[in-house]
Amino acid sequence: VLHDLRQRFPEIPEGVVSQCMLQNNNNLEACCRALSQES
């Protein structure tokens, strides 16, 4: 999931992506929604 998200959101730091995964229990859809608001 992390690799997938890193490719979709290259401009977001890995730490932020990891934190997002923890908050969303590694749910790819939820992470994508959260990160798209972030970027």
Rank of each mutant, 00 (worst) to 15 (best):
E38W: 15
Q23D: 15
D4M: 12
L35G: 03
S36D: 12
Q37P: 05
G15S: 14
E14N: 02
L28R: 06
L35H: 06
E38G: 11
M21K: 07
L5C: 15
H3G: 11
A34E: 11
L28S: 04
R8W: 00
N25R: 06
C20K: 13
G15L: 10
L2W: 10
L5M: 05
V16G: 03
P13A: 05
R33L: 09
V17D: 04
S36I: 10
A34W: 06
Q7I: 11
E38Y: 14
Q19K: 14
Q19I: 15
A34C: 07
E38K: 13
P13V: 02
C20G: 08
E14D: 07
E14C: 04
D4E: 15
L2G: 04
L22S: 12
H3R: 14
S36L: 09
P10V: 00
A30I: 01
V1Q: 15
E14H: 14
S39L: 12
V1T: 11
C32Q: 07
Q19N: 12
S39C: 11
R33M: 08
V17E: 01
I12K: 04
Q37E: 14
D4L: 14
V17R: 01
Q7K: 12
L5V: 01
C31Y: 01
I12P: 02
R8M: 13
V17C: 04
R33Y: 06
S39T: 15
S36T: 10
M21W: 03
Q7W: 00
S39Y: 12
P10C: 00
D4N: 11
C20M: 13
V17H: 03
G15F: 10
E14I: 08
L35W: 01
D4T: 13
Q23I: 03
E38D: 12
L35P: 05
V17T: 00
A30P: 03
V17M: 06
E14L: 10
C32L: 08
Q19E: 14
F9G: 01
L22A: 15
A34I: 12
R33N: 07
R6L: 13
L35D: 02
L5W: 01
A34N: 01
C32K: 08
V16R: 13
S18G: 06
E14S: 06
Q7P: 00
N25V: 01
L2N: 11
P13K: 05
V1R: 08
S18R: 15
G15H: 15
V16Q: 10
I12D: 00
R33W: 08
I12R: 02
Q19H: 09
S36V: 07
R8L: 09
C20Y: 12
Q37K: 14
P10H: 00
C31T: 08
C31P: 04
P13T: 02
A30W: 02
L28G: 04
P13H: 03
Q23W: 02
P10M: 02
P10W: 00
A30Q: 09
R8I: 06
Q7R: 14
N24L: 03
R8D: 03
N25E: 08
M21F: 05
V16H: 07
F9I: 02
E38V: 11
D4A: 12
Q19Y: 07
R6M: 14
V1E: 13
H3C: 09
R33T: 10
L35S: 02
N25P: 04
I12W: 03
C20R: 06
V1G: 09
L2Q: 08
C20V: 15
S39Q: 13
F9S: 04
F9N: 04
E38S: 11
A30M: 09
S36R: 12
P13I: 06
Q37Y: 07
E11H: 10
N26M: 07
N25D: 12
E11M: 08
V16S: 04
L28A: 05
H3M: 12
M21V: 07
L35Q: 04
L5H: 06
Q7G: 06
P13C: 02
S18H: 15
P10D: 03
C20P: 05
A30R: 07
C31G: 05
P10Y: 06
N25C: 05
C32T: 11
A30T: 04
N27S: 05
M21Y: 09
P13Y: 00
A30V: 05
E11R: 06
F9R: 02
H3A: 14
S39M: 11
L35F: 03
N25L: 03
L22D: 11
I12H: 09
L22R: 14
R8H: 01
E11D: 14
E14M: 06
D4Y: 11
N26S: 08
S18P: 00
N24E: 07
N24S: 01
N27E: 09
L2K: 01
S18Q: 15
V1M: 15
L28T: 03
S36G: 09
N26Q: 06
S18W: 12
S18K: 15
N26R: 02
C31I: 03
P10E: 02
L22P: 01
S18A: 14
L35V: 00
E14G: 01
